[in-house]
Design a protein around this nucleic acid. Structure first.
Lengths: 191, 191
DNA sequence: TGATTTGTTCAAAGCATATTGAACGAAATT
DNA sequence: AATTTCGTTCAATATGCTTTGAACAAATCA
């Protein structure tokens, strides 16, 4: 009804953005380069937007603009995050193929650097993340179809409601088919 | 180094999935249809994955499989969420164009139903969400380029480091251009 | 072998967002 | 005009993810 004064049709009461990363509070002590700082913040922001830990994104941002391999302690010093976070984030990025380990002779520390080809990283993300998600929801869709049949039998839904629901599920399935059709293109783009 | 027993290269220590919605704890009292239950859960899950409130997704899931317009109290009864959440979520979905209000004569309640054409909903989401994000990050990228120049002057980065960073930023810009090239296709797909 | 360095783990604390629910205002009803 | 019905708001609470940091284990060093 929009009964109240401030209520406008176009207002969305839910926050869509992520909280800002005020670089002043998180020191980034060792980072003299402003460009790196901005990259670290932007990357952290993006990761958070994608539902991933901000610190992992900061981690990657630093690597992405680092010409020389970095150790865990470099990360800790540059970003001002705990060693635990640095370790966890680094291993996560390794697992995604976003980072690679650089073995240095006579060095006891582990050194890492970003995988240069962003395509590779995105391709991995697509395979591990997007593709599996789509498959999962497709499975749930199939579940719904059979549950719908069950509902018809048990009388949980009357005939017209069941028909309506079947239409809607059909629309979702059609969309899934379209997505499947797009997949080869997406893969070609990434490879 | 993978120094420890359990540490495998392919393990990612960070949770990528969202917590499951055990339907048993959240009652969904009034929902007899199992298909609707599954849809509510799946939709809530998907929203959460996209960084949106789960309850808003549950809300939409219910509408999507409802043949008849639903009121706020219907939502509250069906999903077992508070009226506050129901109101907030509904207004949010309205603002996105995912729901439309149905005016019923001689009825004092507000009734809503899902917008049937999923294309429209996704098109709105693309415009309000994806497109603006890309623009934001493109802006930050431009900022980095100028900060990099500044770093070169102040000596925060030496020559070879600056060159390396410039290459990396160039790669990102190239990717942005590619994305921009894809945008018309995406829009055509959605319209 | 013992001491030191380094990476990993995970319980606890911190933090940010989602949800609730009671108070409120507007509209409809009596 | 008073009462009832609704939708909205927002402070307080609940929830769940992230981060920390200390304890630990492996590897290197002396």
């Amino acid at each position: 009804m929009s009964r109240h004064f401030g209520a406008q049709e176009t207002d969305c009461p839910v926050r869509i953005c992520v909280s800002v990363d005020r670089g002043s509070e998180n020191p980034m002590k060792g980072l003299r380069s402003k460009a790196r700082r901005e990259m670290v913040q932007a990357s952290g922001h993006l990761f958070q937007l994608l539902g991933l830990p901000r610190s992992t994104g900061q981690n990657y941002g630093l690597f992405y603009l680092s010409a020389t391999p970095q150790s865990l302690d470099d990360i800790v010093g540059n970003l001002g995050i705990s060693k635990g976070s640095a370790s966890t984030g680094t291993r996560c990025l390794l697992a995604w193929g976003a980072l690679k380990q650089v073995r240095t002779q006579g060095q006891r520390r582990d050194y890492f650097e970003a995988v240069g080809e962003l395509r590779v990283v995105l391709s991995n993300a697509y395979r591990d993340y997007v593709k599996t998600r789509i498959a999962t929801y497709a499975r749930r869709l199939a579940t719904m179809v059979s549950l719908l049949e069950e509902d018809s039998k048990t009388g949980a839904l009357d005939k017209s409601e069941a028909k309506f629901c079947a239409q809607r599920l059909g629309q979702l399935d059609k969309m899934h088919q379209t997505l499947r059709g797009l997949a080869p293109w997406a893969e070609k783009f990434l490879n």
